[in-house]
Structures are given as C-alpha cells and as structure tokens.
Design a protein around this nucleic acid. Structure first.
Lengths: 115, 115, 115, 115
DNA sequence: GTGGTCTAGACCACT
DNA sequence: GTGGTCTAGACCACA
C-alpha cells in the first residue's frame, strides 16, 4: 500500500489515497473517516505523518473535522476533488505526457498498444 | 526555464534539458557542449549544481569529458538516451498516466481532444 | 449557531452564549434555564459538552443548580458577568484590537466607518 | 518574544511574527529570511515548529524558498499580507469587537479612553 | 550550509 | 476515545 522508496513523500501518498477513496465513492460525503491513529496503524506509519495528510486536505476544504470526534468527508468533496484533479491532469499531466511522447517518437495510437 | 520550487531537483532539470537537446538533435554526437560555467550563468544556478548534471550524464555514458577542453556529446548518445527514456516512459509514465486518466473518467480519445 | 471548526472550544461557545443571554436580559436572574438536554439537542452537541458549559458557569457563581429541578440564573449574575467580561475586554481585547488596528494603518475614526 | 502559555499555537505566533516583520517593512520583498534553524534558536523552539510556520506562509504564497538556499519574502508579499490581514480585521475582528463593546455598554469614544 | 520528511513519544484539550 | 501541538533527534537530498 505504502511505497517508502517512492520519491513522493508518504504523507502525500496518503492524501492521494484518501482522495482516491472519495473519487471511487468508497468514502461518502459527510461520512466519518478512519481516525488518524487507525490510518497510522493501517499504513504502518507514524501518526504525525497520517495527521499531516489530513491537514493538507483540510486546508483545501476536502476534509472537515469535529474536535474530539474525528475527520469527515466534506460536503461537495467529490466534485471538488474531481475538478481539482482533472484541472491538474489536463493542464499539467497531459501536455507533459504528450510532449514526452512526441519527443520519444510515439503517438497516441502507440499508447493504446502499451496500455 | 528553471523551476526552483518544483519538487524535481534542479540538477535533474538540467540533465533533462541536456537529454532533450540531444533527442531533438540540437546537440550532435561528438559535438562540444556549453561549459559548466556557461550553463550555470544561463540557468542562474550554482556551478556545482550544473556540474552535477554533467556528472550524472557522464556516469551513464551520454557525456564525455576531455580534461582541459570541455564536455562532449558521446558517440551513441542519441540511441542511449532514446532507449533509456523510452523504457522509462513505457514502464513508468504510461501506466501512471492511464491510471489517472481512468480514475478521472477519461479515455485515450478524450486525450486527443485536449492535446 | 455552533462552530465546530472554530478554535474556540464548543463548551466555551455555549457558555458564552449563556452569558450573552444574561447580559442581553433575555434570561432573568432567578429564572430557570433550558435543561442540559434541551441545550444539547438545540445545539447538536453531546450532553456532556453542554453540561461542561453549565459546570463552568456554576463554578464562578453565575449559574445555580437545584438537584432534580434544573439550572437557574444566580442572583447577582448580571453584575458578575458584566464585571468579568468588562475586565477581560479592557485588559485583553482592547489592547489587542488597538495593536492590530495600528499595524494595519487604521485609527479609531476609521473603525466608525466600518461599524 | 514567544508566549508558551498563550492559547495560540507557537507555530502560528511565529508566522504572525514573520507577517509583522513584512508589514513593518523590516524584511523586504525578495530578501532572504533567517534560516529555519536560526529562527528555531532565536525563538527557543524546535526546528520543526519553526519549519511549520514557514510552510504555512509558503502555502499562501507569502514566502518562497530555493532548495538548499533558504526562504525568501515573495514578491508582492507586503500587499498580500496587508490585504489579507485587513480583510480579516474588517470582516471578523471589527464586527466581533463592536458587538462585544455594545453588549458591555461601551462605545468607541470610551475605547479612546482605555487605549 | 539549506530545506524536507519521518519517527517516537509525550502532553494537552475536547467530546 | 478523538484531534492538535511540540520536542528531540535522525536522515536525506540539494546547493
């Protein structure tokens, strides 16, 4: 689940994981999420690291929390995450991908063969 | 040109730049490359950092250093870079791209529209 | 009414609310206050939390508890609350406010315009 | 300088301090700021805590950093901070202050006497 | 030297 | 039980 030799920081991998749970409709809006400590145990990570993932998502309004109770998926989180990730994908990932692709002498039909 | 707040290390951004020059046939095999100093000034970067980019490429045989003269694009560099970058692209970039794409509800035909 | 993502503790938000009711003469001295349960339901809060608000006010003599009957606004509560809040206001809130005000380039006459 | 018994978290006190340095024109835009470790020593705080203050400000674009070099006051930081703090002041602090003031039976002319 | 991430573990306030 | 803050200290990559 967790990739410790990835160059991407662990806390970011965790917040990506959370976003994916939301995108995949596994965690519904308004629903309570696993506690920081549960996530930490589940992912074999320090609670601080898990906490940091939640913090990040809280800052952008995807997650809310109630003191002493836990973290919840914010209302509108699905759309927010989808919009954000799509924007990022189209504006950053796609152009970069296309550029590499062309430079390496491939086209989109080749990609179909690899996938 | 240089992105100082990217997560990608600067020396890697430079060596990517160099590889791209080679792939785009802008720097021919056997040709002399700009000096470390020139690169450093051009990219507003510490000479040590520019040096490290050359070093990395030298280690994998893409660049050759003739003492007292300068750095040169190695013979066979074009093929070497192309092969390496293609492998990386197909094994890492493509699968990752496809995964993101699917999660966000797109398919390869959509991508054609964005590109 | 209740702000769950505020830094101010919920029990304090509740006891502030109660004090304000007293200051605004909405709850008279000697009068019976809503039960802990009612408050808890009204504010969508755990009864323990509502209880803690009452407890706090009971400790400083603003609220009295008659066992089996309920909570009452203590005699002299109005003056007590007013004095306490005024002291707090003048010693803490005012200096802080003035400091921020000056740093942001405003003066008290500007404030009149905003109010 | 640092208030450990304040209810406000230390890392926030530090980022407030930094904002104030900028507002007071003590740290100019584009200038290099003390390193995380220097701040930590200066404020007698753990480097992690100092780091967190910078992170917060980086997230809102007031601070920039160059890897391996240090943190810098971002271009436009002065205006950004001033605007942000003013907005906060006018929309949150002032109404709250006025409300408390009125409830406690004071008016703005009284405040002049206290200040 | 710089920032950045992570762990381990403590302590606190809140519900 | 929950989240939140903080410390101490380690390790890493980068310039």
């Amino acid at each position: 689940m967790m990739n410790f030799s990835d160059n991407k920081p662990i806390y970011q991998q965790i917040s990506d994981f959370i976003c994916n749970q939301i995108l995949d409709k596994k965690w519904a809006e308004g629903g309570r999420m696993p506690s920081v400590r549960e996530i930490a145990v589940l992912m074999e990570v320090n609670p601080n690291t898990a906490m940091r993932a939640f913090q990040t998502l809280q800052d952008i309004g995807v997650v809310e929390n109630r003191r002493g109770i836990g973290h919840f998926v914010a209302e509108g989180a699905y759309d927010a995450v989808l919009t954000m990730k799509r924007k990022e994908f189209i504006e950053t990932d796609v152009p970069q991908f296309i550029k590499s692709m062309k430079r390496l002498g491939y086209n989109l039909d080749d990609i179909k063969g690899f996938a």
